[in-house]
Every structure is written in C-alpha cells, then in structure tokens.
C-alpha cells in the first residue's frame, strides 16, 4: 500500500514538474520590459529558498550527529548539503542570467546575490573539508562542527548584506519586488535636489495635465556629463502611469505622490519586473512551482540519505 502511494507520488511529482516547465513557457504571459527573461523567476525563487532550507536542515542534523555520533545522522546532514548545493548552483546561475538580462550586469552584490554566493562558498568548503579527512569518525565530527559554525555567521550576513549595496557604485533600492525604500521627497520651494542611489535628481516642475499629474525631474547619472529630463506621471487615482527609464539603465522612475499646488513630489527608482506577480496566471504558476520544487528537493534528499545510510550500515557490519 505504502509502495503504491510512493509510486503514485513519484509520477505525480514528475508530471507536476513537467507541468511547471510547460506553464513557465507557454501559459505565463510576457512582461513589458522583461521579455522572456521574466519567466526565469518561476524557477529561480523556489530554488533559492530550497537551498536555504536545505542548509538549515543540514545544520540541524549536524547538531544531532554530535549528540548521537550515529553515522546515519551524518548521512542525513550530507544529503541535505548535497541537495542544497545543487539547488544553490541552480539559483545562482538563474539569478545571474536574470540580472544580466534585466539589470545589465551579471553580478550586482545585491543582498540576495551576496547571500546566495556565500552559501555556495560554505557548501563548497564543507565538501572540501570532508574530502580531505581520511578517518571516518573524524571526518563526520569535524564537518559537523564546521557546518554549525558556518550557520552562526549567517545572521550577520543577513544583517550586513543590505549594506553591501550601499556603496557609491550601485543603486540602492533595486530589488526585484519593487523598491523597499520610500523614495525621495522633492519640493519646488525647498529641497528640490536629492539623490536616488547615486543619481542626482532635481525637481523642475509639478503640473496637472488633463487628469494626469506629471512631474518633470532632471537626472544626472554618475559618469555622464549630459543631464536628462524624465517625466513620470500619475493618474487620477494616484497610481503611477508612465515610468520613464533612467538613461543607460533598466531602472525606471515612478511618481509616488505629487501635489501640483504645493509643488511637491515624491519619486523613486524601480527595477523592471516589479508587479510581475500581480498577474493571476503567473501567481498561480509561481506558487505551484514553489511547491513542486520543494517536493522535488525533498525527494532527492530522501533518496540520497537512504543511499548514504545504507552504505554507513554496511561499513559497520563489514568490519566483523
């Protein structure tokens, strides 16, 4: 009975994965400014969180191993790390592809990129350590210690990573799901010059044009000598309408608030791809993909853990 169920589950998982791939290319609509590259998010995001979960699982089993000293627990820790590494590579590569197409650079030291890279380095180090120790018990013990030690540094990374993007070379709020910063407020009668990331912005005008509110903002990109005028607009309901692109970049300027009478406006930088998930079909495919990838990871992990555990058991009985 249980075997039957397992067989059915296996086929169901295969079908679901095939379904996701199909949907990713044929069901999900294209996005303005992103082209087909946006589809990669369907697979990129799930692999990213799966790798973090795998890392956590590996650390937990490492702690358990140090308590019990049972090779079976170590086998679980290693399998989780293997699955994690596999998905980490996938997440990093898909992420870099997306970044190149959308943002123009392969690597941005964006917080998420930094975190995934560090995770990749930790996985690689873990396996390098394991392969350099011959004695079985010592190998298990020391790699478990390293796993736990590496885990302790993760909170610092999560805390520190956002500050990496704080340098003068990279834009600050360019995250995928839209800007997390509130943008800058400009006032024609007061502070009309400010900075968005490292782009200097100056408010030139705020006017009502028909039923749209428009702000005219002069932008000075670092390294470029010409200035450019951008005119983001907002409709009567306060939703941003026209989002002009920054010159030479894929980022767009959006108008968040505007008051033509007072001469104030609030503008922000936005990465393309924001609002990707507001489309219903995409959202459902995305959710389904998360579930499918999670199950896939679990399945690979179970198989690998079983193999390693069987091998560990064989080794102990072989001796006598």
């Amino acid at each position: 009975m249980a075997e039957r169920l397992a067989l059915i589950a296996k086929y169901a998982l295969g079908l679901a994965m095939a379904g996701i791939i199909y949907a990713m290319f044929l069901v999900v609509p294209q996005y303005v400014g992103l082209g087909d590259a946006g589809r990669i998010i369907i697979v990129h995001v799930p692999t990213a969180w799966v790798t973090s979960a795998a890392f956590a699982l590996s650390a937990i089993y490492s702690i358990v191993y140090l308590r019990t000293r049972s090779p079976l627990h170590d086998a679980s820790a290693v399998s989780a790390a293997e699955v994690g590494m596999l998905f980490c590579i996938f997440a990093t590569v898909t992420g870099a592809i997306f970044a190149e197409v959308v943002w123009g650079t392969f690597w941005n030291w964006d917080p998420r990129e930094t975190t995934i890279l560090v995770l990749l380095l930790i996985y690689a180090a873990y396996f390098a350590l394991r392969s350099s120790i011959d004695d079985g018990a010592r190998r298990r013990r020391l790699s478990a210690v390293y796993n736990i030690f590496a885990c302790v540094t993760m909170p610092f990374l999560l805390f520190v990573a956002p500050r990496v993007a704080d340098s003068t070379l990279h834009p600050n709020c360019a995250f995928l799901q839209g800007s997390k910063c509130e943008g800058v407020s400009l006032d024609l009668n007061g502070a009309k010059i400010s900075q968005l990331g490292d782009v200097v912005v100056e408010l030139k005008a705020v006017e009502q044009v028909g039923d749209m509110t428009r702000a005219v903002v002069e932008v000075r990109m670092p390294g470029l000598t010409e200035y450019a005028d951008l005119a983001p607009t907002m409709d009567s309901e306060g939703k941003a309408a026209d989002r002009p692109e920054f010159p030479g970049q894929s980022f767009r300027m959006i108008l968040i608030e505007a008051d033509p009478q007072a001469g104030t406006a609030r503008v922000n930088m936005q990465a393309p791809g924001t609002g990707l998930l507001s489309n219903q079909r995409t959202l459902w495919v995305f959710l389904a993909s998360n579930v499918t990838f999670g199950l896939l990871a679990l399945w690979i992990y179970r198989i690998r853990a079983t193999i390693l555990q069987v091998s560990a058991r064989l080794q102990t009985t072989e001796a006598f």
Binding site: L121, A125, A128, F156, L157, A161, R163
Partner: peptide
Amino acid sequence: AVLSFPLLIPLLVT
C-alpha cells in the same frame, strides 16, 4: 583559506 573565507565575509564588509 577555503573554510574561513565565507565566514569572514560579513566581517570583511563591515
């Protein structure tokens, strides 16, 4: 170096 470097990244950045 291989084992230490990933753990030192938060330190290095700060």
